[in-house]
């Protein structure tokens, strides 16, 4: 008999610290999502099959993400995407995509690789900008924009969720999550 282990995120004990932040900079830990790394030739036949499975075409423009019916698809490279879904189990998402891709690409479950943070508030972009060199102005980084970049010393995938530079999703490698959380708490100090 195996023990039933509860799934906990790397930041499950940080809620109290995040709660001390002002309304203009809110940090929240988001729920666990299944994450699958997808590699295929977008010009090949697998692209259409994957689009049919996900209900949305794979974004081919660099630095973008799109929302499907049940999954989010993030551009990671000219032949690479990150598919995340809060609805499917990692195994189900991987199996479904693998069936759609067939032999024309690679599908790997990377759910354990990254954890998700939400950064919201009027000063969200200001906090990020103190350690992130990407231009975050909403005229160039609005809803549907994504960037793989660094915040402080941590590599992240940054998604813009609104057009007013006040709502972001940050996917960070689990082992860097506490570093990033500390960094955000520190950077938020000047806005409290």
């Amino acid at each position: 008999m195996t023990a039933d282990l509860a799934r906990i995120g790397p930041l499950h004990q940080w809620g109290g610290l995040f709660a001390t932040l002002p309304d203009s900079v809110q940090v929240l830990t988001e729920q666990f999502v299944a994450q699958v790394d997808l590699r295929l030739d977008p010009a090949g036949p697998a692209g259409a099959d994957v689009a049919a499975y996900l209900g949305v075409a794979l974004p081919e423009a660099p630095n973008t993400w799109v929302q499907g019916d049940t999954a989010t698809v993030i551009w990671l490279g000219p032949d690479e995407w990150l598919v995340t879904s809060p609805f499917a189990s990692p195994e189900a998402l991987e199996a479904g995509l693998r069936e759609a891709v067939g032999a024309d690409g690679a599908v790997v479950d990377v759910s354990a690789q990254r954890t998700t943070l939400r950064l919201r508030g009027a000063h969200a972009a200001d906090v990020l900008a103190s350690g992130c060199a990407v231009d975050l102005h909403p005229s160039v980084f609005a809803t549907g924009s994504a960037a793989q970049t660094t915040v402080g010393m941590a590599g992240i995938v940054l998604l813009a969720l609104d057009d007013s530079a006040s709502d972001y999703r940050l996917l960070v490698r689990s082992t860097f999550a506490r570093y990033l959380a500390s960094w955000l708490l520190d950077a938020a100090q000047e806005h409290s």
Partner: peptide, 17 residues
Amino acid sequence: MIELPCPWCGPRGVSEF
């Protein structure tokens, strides 16, 4: 910081490269 033109991601700081 020097900015490098990544043909995919656009201009980024050199520390990413």
